[in-house]
């Protein structure tokens, strides 16, 4: 699935689109540069969500403008660094939004389970 930046917002209350949420999730466990975000999103969704460069940077611009992510000032060691890369980290506000969105989705899934639309997840 290719997710575009202008995809429908998942519900009227949600401030982020699924693609934005995926980017936020990718940054929750640490700062990353653009290519790393792409790879993480693809891996975490088993290839279900594949962001293109255009879509990714459209999302990054919006998240930066809304203060949900910020450019990181810390950089890796010089031998591993590429000056053309920029690293992004999730902000407190971004984390809150991601949590809110995750909770909202959890509630949705609970409702779907209650209605037996999907089976309860049972770890093997």
């Amino acid at each position: 699935m290719i997710v575009r930046a202008n995809d429908e917002i998942s519900s009227p209350q949600a401030p982020v689109t699924p693609a934005m949420f995926n980017v936020l999730l990718a940054l929750v466990d640490g700062e990353k540069h653009g290519y790393a975000i792409l790879k993480e999103v693809a891996e975490q969704t088993q290839g279900g969500v594949r962001l293109s460069t255009g879509t990714l940077y459209g999302i990054i611009k919006r998240l930066l403008a809304e203060g949900l992510i910020a450019e990181s000032r810390t950089r890796p060691a010089a031998e591993r660094d590429d000056p053309r890369r920029r690293y992004y980290r999730v902000t407190e506000a971004g984390r809150e939004v991601a949590v809110t969105e995750a909770v909202r989705m959890e509630k949705l899934i609970a409702r779907a389970r209650a209605k037996r639309l999907i089976k309860a997840f049972r770890p093997a």
């Binding site: 290719i2 575009r4 594949r50 293109s52 460069t53 459209g58």
Partner: peptide, 14 residues
């Protein structure tokens, strides 16, 4: 294809 679609999709919005 994904790259092209992504840029063409984002450009008008921006």
């Amino acid at each position: 294809w994904e790259t092209l679609a992504g840029i063409v999709g984002v450009a008008p919005r921006e």
